[in-house]
């Protein structure tokens, strides 16, 4: 065994703060450091273990992690990322998560990789994640992938509070939030919504559908979110959804782009009175 340094007093959790300059990370409690690590790319968070003894196992209890893949990231492909993520998930042994960001850019539409991403999502849900952000961009030239669905089964979580989805193809299962009673904020960007028939959430307060989302040009899909407080909707292509009554709604911003079936020219830049009426058939 290597000789240990006599550092007993120096490594105590709370050390006297230097008078000026050089504030030491040592003064911060573990719980704060766990939170700091949650903002780093996951690889960097794990590597803080070499800084000093106190930091050795901090990453295992980080309150969140960010898994990033792309040209500007450490892992440029799913293949490079895969081993790291598997180690990370297994070795942190299901410690509770506050937040998780998975951002995978310019990846291939590979069946195995897509299955893997779904499994990662399942895993972080089991870690009681409260804020989940999933961005995907596939090498297919389009804003979203026809191949990649979030999952065949609806998400189930007592803890999920905020969900951000970008670049996926959504189906009825992926937007059935009956099993997520704590979900309050849902942000959808650049997603395919061509197959949707309905979106359901009793708890949702803020819904934002922006970016180049494609809606069906067949039957409008229905949004059942009776407790919505704030709505932001941009229809880039297809027919806008229909909303069930939202008695608590305080503000709504709706924008229909040229590709939207509900778009029609008006002399003024804003205001689509007849359109609004059709979106909210039972009133707000």
């Amino acid at each position: 065994m290597p000789p240990r340094r006599r550092g007993g007093t120096r490594t105590s959790k709370r050390v006297a703060r230097p008078v000026a300059g050089g504030a030491s990370l040592d003064v911060l409690p573990d719980e704060v450091l766990h939170h700091v690590l949650s903002f780093l790319p996951a690889q960097e968070a794990v590597r803080t273990c070499v800084l000093g003894r106190r930091c050795r196992h901090l990453w295992k209890s980080a309150t969140g992690f960010r898994i990033l893949c792309g040209d500007e990231e450490e892992a440029e492909s799913m293949k490079e990322l895969q081993g790291f993520v598997e180690h990370l998930l297994l070795l942190r042994a299901g410690a509770p998560l506050d937040s998780c960001q998975i951002c995978l850019l310019d990846i291939e539409e590979d069946e195995d990789d897509m299955r893997r991403i779904r499994l990662w999502i399942r895993h972080v849900m089991l870690c009681k994640v409260r804020v989940l952000s999933l961005s995907t961009r596939f090498n297919n030239g389009g804003p979203w992938s026809e191949e990649f669905y979030l999952d065949e089964l609806p998400l189930l979580s007592q803890h999920l509070k905020r969900l951000e989805l970008r670049g996926q193809n959504l189906n009825d299962s992926s937007v059935d939030f009956s099993g997520c009673p704590a979900l309050e904020v849902l942000e959808i960007k650049q997603c395919g919504m061509l197959d949707l028939r309905k979106m359901v959430s009793q708890s949702l307060k803020v819904l934002s559908i922006t970016g180049r989302c494609e809606f069906t040009d067949g039957d409008r899909f229905h949004v059942y979110a009776p407790n919505l407080v704030s709505l932001r909707l941009e229809v880039w292509y297809g027919m806008a959804p229909i909303f069930s009554p939202m008695p608590s709604l305080v503000e709504a911003a709706v924008k229909i782009d040229y590709g939207g079936c509900d778009f029609f020219y008006d002399d003024t830049d804003e205001g689509f009175p007849s359109f609004h009426a059709s979106l909210f058939p039972e009133g707000i």
Partner: peptide, 10 residues
């Protein structure tokens, strides 16, 4: 962050 490296090389 004024962190002491208190690890041994090993």
């Amino acid at each position: 962050f004024n962190i002491k490296n208190d690890y041994t090389k090993e």
